[in-house]
Structures are given as structure tokens and as C-alpha cells.
Amino acid sequence: MNDLRVLVVEDEPIAAEAHTAYVGRVAGFAVAATVGTCQEAVQALQEHPVDVVLLDMHLPDRHGLDVLRALRSAGHRADVIAVTSARELDVVRSAVSLGVVQYLLKPFTFATFRERLDAYRAYVEQAQRVSSVTNQSEIDQMLGSLRPSRPTELPKGLSPEMLDRISTMLRASGSALSARDLAEQLPVSRVTARRYAEHLCETGLVERRSRYAGAGRPEVEYRWV
């Protein structure tokens, strides 16, 4: 089976670079193009053969759902995996109704990303081996291959709930926050807040910089990209 060709649609440069690099590290996949707007995504679909689209929902020109609608209206049969921070129920339901095969919430680790792509490839390989299904069990098995075999794992000591709270806080703040700022608002220890913020930096969703305020060591602060 040839490599599956991937269109990465992500407007944040750091996240786009990370997702593109992630695809290159997963066996059986190759990046066809990386774009940052709805218009560029539609054009890329016309210019490149694409098997699967990694689609962010928050694009600068139009909503990611518009890419989905344009893709289906034009007759493109590429599958779509939503890779987004959009948690609104109506967005999730609309994405499912338009044929999204997986919905991956930011932030995530490379291990989670790879697991989702591997599951998708298993689904494609299984679909290519048969021309029709004979019973419900075969359908369940095929659709079940799209789901990861185990729960999403974070680095030891990190919980999804706290990661979501810190992500939400940084995304909503509109400005950079230090580990001390995060710790005071949650509340958790400064060390704990720093661990989560550093993990978000590793995923490409947050950037760090030094805050200088008088004498002494500068304080590290974190900003949602």
C-alpha cells in the first residue's frame, strides 16, 4: 500500500510546523501540502491528490466546517480528521454529520497523534481488502479500527482534566502567564503549573519567553500561540 497523502490545514505557524513534522514521522503517511486558510485548503485539494485532511476548525478566513462543505460539494472523497481546540458541541456534531472520521482535541502528544493516524491507516487497509461486507460483525470491526486501542496517554503525573484547565486559561487570557500566575488561579503548586505549561510548549501550542522585572533572575512566562 502506498503512503497516504495528507493535507495539513492549520493557521498557527508553530502548530502547522509541528503537525507537518508529526506526519513525516509516522510510517505510511506523506504530506501533500500544508496550508493555513480555507481558501488555500480548497485550492490545495484541486492541485494535489489527497487521501486525508488534518483540519483545524479555527481558520482566519472561514470556519473549518466550510472547508468540509466545499470538499463534499466538489465531490472530493478525502477523509477528514479534525485536529482542533474547538469543543463546542454544535461544531462536533456538524463535523460528524459532514463525515469527519476522527476528532482529535488539542493539546495532544505525538504518541496520541501517531496512534490516531495508525488507527486510520488500519481502517483504510481493511477497507481496501474487501469490496463488500457480509455481516454486522465485519462492519463493526472496520469502524472499530478507527478508534484507538487504549486511552490517550499523557506524561506520567499529568492529568487530562488539569491539562484542559491550564490550556483553557492560557487560551482565554490574551496575554502571557507565568507558572506563578497559573498556580495562583487554579490553585496548584508552581512546580505543577510549570510542568503542564512546559508540556504545552512541547506540543507547539504554547510558547515560552522571559519576563524581566527589575533585578534578579527573569521569570518564564507562557503564551498560547
Rank of each mutant, 00 (worst) to 15 (best):
V52Y: 08
V52P: 07
V52W: 04
V52A: 06
V53M: 12
V53A: 03
L55D: 04
L55A: 10
L55K: 11
D56L: 09
M57V: 10
M57Y: 08
M57C: 12
M57R: 09
H58A: 14
H58T: 12
L59N: 02
L59P: 00
L59R: 05
P60V: 06
P60A: 04
P60G: 04
P60F: 06
P60E: 04
D61T: 06
R62Q: 14
R62L: 12
R62S: 09
R62M: 12
R62T: 01
H63W: 03
H63N: 11
H63D: 12
G64A: 05
L65R: 11
L65C: 08
D66I: 02
D66E: 15
V67S: 07
V67R: 06
V67Q: 06
V67G: 06
V67I: 10
V67F: 02
L68W: 01
L68A: 08
R69T: 11
R69W: 00
A70R: 14
A70H: 10
A70M: 05
A70I: 00
A70E: 12
A70D: 09
L71I: 00
L71T: 07
R72N: 07
R72C: 00
R72K: 13
S73Y: 01
S73A: 15
A74W: 05
A74L: 08
A74R: 14
A74C: 07
A74S: 14
A74P: 05
G75Y: 07
H76M: 05
H76Q: 08
R77K: 14
A78P: 03
D79Q: 12
V80E: 01
V80R: 02
V80G: 02
I81C: 06
I81P: 04
I81V: 14
I81N: 03
I81Y: 02
A82N: 13
A82S: 13
V83A: 07
V83D: 02
V83F: 06
A86S: 14
A86M: 12
E88K: 13
E88Q: 14
E88R: 15
L89A: 15
D90N: 10
D90R: 10
D90Y: 02
D90M: 01
D90L: 00
V91M: 13
V91Q: 11
V92M: 15
V92Q: 14
V92F: 15
R93K: 14
R93C: 07
R93W: 00
R93I: 08
R93D: 10
S94I: 00
S94Y: 00
S94Q: 15
A95Y: 01
A95R: 05
A95E: 02
A95P: 01
V96N: 00
L98S: 01
G99F: 04
G99Q: 05
G99L: 07
G99A: 03
V100R: 07
V101W: 06
V101S: 11
Q102Y: 09
L104H: 07
L104I: 13
L104M: 15
L105S: 14
L105I: 03
L105Y: 13
K106L: 13
K106P: 04
K106Q: 13
K106S: 09
K106E: 06
P107N: 05
P107G: 00
P107T: 07
F108M: 14
